[in-house]
Nucleic acid binder design. Sequence first.
DNA 1: TTGACATATGACAATATTTACATATAATCA
DNA 2: TGATTATATGTAAATATTGTCATATGTCAA
Lengths: 110, 110
Amino acid sequence: MNKETLKTEAAMFSALAHPLRLKILEKLHDGPCCVCKIIQYVGGEQSNVSHHLAILRKANIVHSEKKGLEVWYEVTDPEIFRIVDLMHGCIVLNLKKSRDILNSLIRSVK
Amino acid sequence: MNKETLKTEAAMFSALAHPLRLKILEKLHDGPCCVCKIIQYVGGEQSNVSHHLAILRKANIVHSEKKGLEVWYEVTDPEIFRIVDLMHGCIVLNLKKSRDILNSLIRSVK
DNA sequence: TTGACATATGACAATATTTACATATAATCA
DNA sequence: TGATTATATGTAAATATTGTCATATGTCAA
């Protein structure tokens, strides 16, 4: 893969590399949603959530649309959810492996 | 998803969020590989590559084994490649969409 | 048009990441 | 044992990310 593509891909992963942003995506999994609901869901300062939404927007992971006073956000490509889910699977597998190793250690000591 | 899991997942994405680390994974796609070959493949300072390998190790994305003087690295869970590939697909789709929009703009101006 | 509301943006301090250089460690070989 | 090789680690400067506070923007309703 060429240098520019690697950089772009790294930037996409970087956009996912924050718990608050993952939580925003979790909320958007239920469908499009206005900022006020997102803020309720993820908690914290309005301006902070807005900054994180901007990061997701700049990475083209979400896009927004004004509806009267509100702004509604939506995921650009639902494949992003598969990525998040796969990563979750990796973590669960890791944990399971660690647990297995720990268990066999405990058995060998007993 | 609970707070700790979100944090762990964010940390995993963070580990992928660098072009050099993605390039290391690209190399490891061909199978286990010693550090000297990785350095050749990705280029740059030995110590820098080593730091990046440490980041991947700490995220449990790769693990290593000493073989004589060399250290061989290998991906822990090949699912990581699917994640990287899916993200690549998202980027390609994004580009395609932008291109389509641009083309229809050009047509509408002509 | 003024005020209230929802959201975005700017500025800045705190913190984390990245890179390069120097040095340490561990295995092999003469 | 001492030199050599492959790799890791410590350190520090440069840079990027994060969170908070203050402020700006755009829309609606009175």
